[in-house]
């Protein structure tokens, strides 16, 4: 299962560099951070950031730093407030996508692109919630 997930992530990296600029990796890391809250998410973010920098012809370490700082802020917020909520998902994915696209991908004001990314995040959140309600995921046990 882990190997399959790793394979999916690598494919997503290639997709993000060659076909579309939708920040799939950023959104995936955001959800992994929110769902698992484990230090290995940092490690994943670090290596995926390095890969994105290499294939995207950016300076190494830039995207990794961005991912690490963002995940740190999400986890810091989680210490005080509930993060598996629709408003948090929408705002964090919108802000994160906006900053990511502005710094690394798009020249100008990527407002529509950020909104589209946050819509993807919201749809995925709704799907996760439905799966949780149908007992396919144990999200309620994890979040009480």
């Amino acid at each position: 299962m882990k190997l399959f997930l790793l394979f999916l992530f690598l494919l997503a990296v290639v997709l993000e560099i060659s076909v579309t600029t939708v920040p799939f990796i950023f959104l995936a890391l955001l959800f992994l951070t929110i769902l698992y809250r484990n230090y290995w998410v940092y490690v994943m973010g670090f290596f995926l950031g390095l890969l994105l920098d290499t294939l995207g012809f950016r300076s190494l370490g830039l995207t990794s730093t961005f991912f690490l700082v963002f995940m740190f802020l999400v986890l810091a917020y989680q210490a005080k407030f509930e993060i598996f909520t629709l408003p948090f998902i929408f705002i964090s994915s919108f802000l994160g996508s906006f900053l990511y696209l502005r710094f690394f991908v798009v020249q100008g004001f990527p407002l529509m692109e950020s909104l589209f990314s946050s819509l993807i995040a919201v749809c995925f959140f709704v799907l996760l919630r439905k799966l949780s309600n149908n007992n396919f995921l144990d999200l309620d046990k994890r979040y009480g």
């Binding site: 230090y39 940092y42 300076s59 190494l60 370490g61 990794s64 730093t65 690490l68």
Partner: peptide, 22 residues
């Protein structure tokens, strides 16, 4: 929480080092 912080700091330092090397 301390483990999270250590991992974060180590990875940030490595990222900055890689940025400088690149």
């Amino acid at each position: 929480k301390r483990n999270f912080l250590y991992v974060f700091i180590i990875l940030i330092i490595v990222s900055i080092l890689l940025f400088a090397l690149s």
